[in-house]
Amino acid sequence: MEDKKPRNEAAGQKQAEVRKEEVAQYTVQKQAKTSELTNKNADYMFHFQKALAKTDLPSERQAEIVAEMTAELKEKQKNGVVANKLYGPVTEKVKELVEAPAKAEANKPQPFWMTALDNGLIMLILFCVMYALLGFFDQKSINTQANGWLTLLVTSVVAGTGLAYFYTALSPEKMAASKHKWLKMFGATGALIIVWLVAYYLVMLVPTEFNRTLSPIAYTILAIIGFGVRYYLKQKLGFKRVTF
């Protein structure tokens, strides 16, 4: 009696697996008829839907994906295309679709104002560090209007905004569509330098009493504050690294 029980359980389990396979095959055949897909493509979509249902994607989005893929397969199978070659293994295709929203968000261009703010803060920090070092090692060289607090502020704002425009004008998408890449690059660089020099010249016309030079310690404190502000905003806004 003890030997028969495990055998009966094994036989029952095998029958259940066979029944499950028959149901799956029937479902695939039914799907092939209703969707007008070949048996291979219908089988792929059957397993794809099962795997997709286990993800956290909204049911509406899942239905859209299945409908789009079914329509595409229906059209391309006329030329002998099979789903596995078109989309790859089911697990990889599902993983690609699940990760797609995150990748799209990561590749989304950063707003112009955010790029300008980030670059402006970087330039402010760099100028503060430079002025502080000059002040500590050569006090006479920094006591000029060119190193005043207003010069620091204006040049940082202009440089930050100019660099944001520079990065936007020379983005990979725009450069790929441009026929004269080097000319565009030199033009953008020249425009940035000219605007910065003009702003620098205009701020030099401001009377000294409105553009006083700060002490090296003050510039050091401003650099630390600027670094802290940028670190906080980077965590809050998520500044993206701009590349060409």
Rank of each mutant, 00 (worst) to 15 (best):
M1C: 04
K5L: 15
A10E: 13
A11C: 13
G12W: 06
Q15G: 05
E17D: 12
V18L: 14
A24G: 02
Y26H: 11
T27C: 15
Q29A: 14
K30W: 10
K30E: 14
Q31E: 09
S35Y: 08
N39P: 01
N39R: 14
N39G: 08
K40D: 08
N41K: 08
M45H: 02
M45C: 07
M45D: 00
F46A: 11
F46S: 09
F46L: 11
A51E: 14
A51N: 13
L52S: 05
L52D: 04
A53L: 12
K54T: 12
K54Y: 05
D56M: 12
L57C: 00
P58L: 14
E60A: 11
R61S: 10
R61W: 13
Q62N: 10
E64T: 11
E68Q: 14
M69G: 01
M69E: 06
A71V: 14
A71E: 09
L73S: 00
V81H: 00
A83M: 08
N84Y: 12
G88Y: 05
P89I: 09
T91V: 15
E92P: 07
V94H: 01
V94F: 08
E96I: 04
E99T: 12
E99C: 10
A100E: 10
P101G: 02
A104P: 01
E105S: 13
A106N: 10
A106P: 04
Q110T: 07
F112I: 05
F112M: 04
F112C: 05
W113I: 06
W113D: 12
L121V: 08
I122Q: 11
I122R: 11
M123W: 13
M123Y: 11
L126C: 03
F127M: 08
F127T: 05
F127K: 01
M130V: 14
Y131N: 10
L133V: 11
L134Q: 05
F136S: 00
F137G: 06
F137Q: 06
D138Y: 06
K140W: 06
S141L: 07
S141A: 08
N143V: 05
A146H: 07
G148I: 04
L152I: 02
V154C: 03
T155C: 04
V157R: 10
A159N: 09
A159F: 09
G160C: 03
G162T: 05
L163I: 11
L163H: 05
A164V: 10
A164T: 10
T168G: 07
A169Y: 00
L170W: 01
K174P: 00
M175Y: 00
H180D: 12
W182H: 11
L183C: 01
K184W: 15
F186H: 02
G187N: 11
L192R: 03
I193P: 03
I193S: 03
I194L: 15
I194E: 05
A199Y: 02
Y201H: 12
V206D: 01
T208A: 15
F210L: 09
L214Q: 08
L214R: 10
S215Q: 03
P216E: 14
A218E: 03
A218F: 06
T220I: 06
T220H: 12
T220Q: 10
I221T: 03
I224T: 12
I224F: 11
F227Q: 12
F227M: 07
F227H: 04
V229K: 02
R230G: 07
L233D: 03
L233Y: 03
K234V: 02
Q235M: 10
Q235S: 09
K236N: 13
L237K: 13
G238S: 07
F239K: 04
R241I: 09
T243Y: 15
F244E: 04
